[in-house]
Amino acid sequence: MSLSYAEWASAVREGSLLGLACEECGHTNGVPTGACPHCGNRDLQQVSLPTEGTVHTETTIQVPPDGFDEGGYQVAVVEVGDARVMGRIADESASVAIGDAVALSGVITEDDDHPAPVFEPV
């Protein structure tokens, strides 16, 4: 079963996360892909990823690129079930550290309306 960017983005806008599970090697991809990047299997199963997870790594960006008004925002890779996804930590939240529990709390579309998941500490 495939998963397109459009389906993934639509889910993120509606407050859920979709991934692709590979039964051949056990990897769960946190975002759409044409085949498992680790083993090449194309027969991947679309899965709903948990919306609560744990911070795998994080950083706070003080020097933003064009298109983002102000620095001081935090980006994290979050472990959600068997997958990981990259997202923003909500601006109004306290910053998070590796190992902290977070939950999906919204979406940002600051970059030409491309959605990114937003998490907040729980």
């Binding site: 790594t57 950083t59 980006v75 996804v85």
Partner: peptide
């Protein structure tokens, strides 16, 4: 473009994520 840039990711922050881990 779809799964990283929309977070506001920059290259210092890419290597910051790897280094903090």
């Amino acid at each position: 473009r779809q799964y990283e840039q929309p977070t506001g990711l920059t290259f210092p922050s890419v290597f910051a994520l790897l280094t903090k881990r």
